[in-house]
Design a protein around this nucleic acid. Structure first.
Lengths: 150, 150
DNA sequence: AGCATTTTGTTGCATTTACAGCAAAATGTT
DNA sequence: AACATTTTGCTGTAAATGCAACAAAATGCT
């Protein structure tokens, strides 16, 4: 079933594209909504962890977060116990945009799942979580420079 | 079920990331494998149609295809009846790489669907196709500059 | 036929993305 | 305690991405 992955890629690009266009009016440039949402949901998280959750390159996350900081949507806090980790928190402005993103995402989900019964929604959610877990280990493996055998 | 879209995004990024790393040894830079596959499968297709299938910006597709042409993996052919459309065809070199991409994609699909029964694979394929169709119209709508209401 | 609209393809430019490679702090090992 | 390894964060650089804006061909309309 090679087209399963294709469909996933296509859906992901389409939705990401839509979100990026719709969030431009809030001065959120490409992809930034992803990071802001995760930081709002996990205040105090460090960027390395955000990259891992999103399955995004470390440096890509670093620069996206840099920009969110520059734009005053999140802030980095240093701790006294740990001088290396920088905890991330949404600012008041970031928290103001957060529900807007949630609303948009909710609407996109509704559109995507039009004509799905509750049971079907339940089931696809479960399927996708299983797939994500299956894929996660390969991603880390390859990202660390290892070669898959096949 | 907002996490459905999230999972899709995460899976898509992870797999795309893996593919890009694995295809670098064949001088396929970021994303090019997507275009090459579609052109191999639909010889004579025009780039506008490729962009639409992939749900990618017109100009992004244009440049990816430009590069594939420059690297000798595909070629553009002009027709006599129609002076605007440029048909795309894989070259001998492109056709040599095609099965390598297919093999990688097949392996990724196997990994992603580990522990899925045949019936489950069937079902998720069907679900995803429905989702893709649901999302496609919004993508075109927004890409053309229209505003969604929600 | 004549004119407006759509389709297709391009380029300029600003931004994001990601591989290399570095440094400093934290953690693990002996 | 001393040293090696891992974790976290950053920057330089090259490439992809995508909006704006244009031109030319094709199509639609009256």
């Amino acid at each position: 079933m090679g087209d399963v992955l294709r469909e996933i890629g296509t859906i992901a690009r389409a939705l990401d594209s839509i979100s990026n266009i719709e969030f431009k009016q809030y001065d959120l440039t490409k992809g930034q909504y992803l990071y802001l949402v995760r930081i709002c949901e996990h205040p105090g998280i460090i960027q390395e962890r955000v990259a891992e959750m999103l399955k995004v390159d470390r440096t890509t996350a670093a620069r996206a977060i840099q920009k969110l900081t520059a734009n005053g949507l999140i802030e980095k806090r240093m701790q006294t116990e740990n001088k290396k980790n920088k905890q991330l928190f949404p600012t008041a402005n970031g928290l103001k945009i957060f529900p807007i993103i949630q609303r948009e995402n909710r609407h996109s989900a509704e559109v995507a799942l039009t004509e799905f019964t509750e049971a079907e929604k339940q089931q696809i959610a479960e399927f996708l979580t299983r797939m994500r877990k299956n894929v996660a280990s390969d991603w880390e493996y390859v990202k660390k420079g290892n070669q898959r055998r096949y």
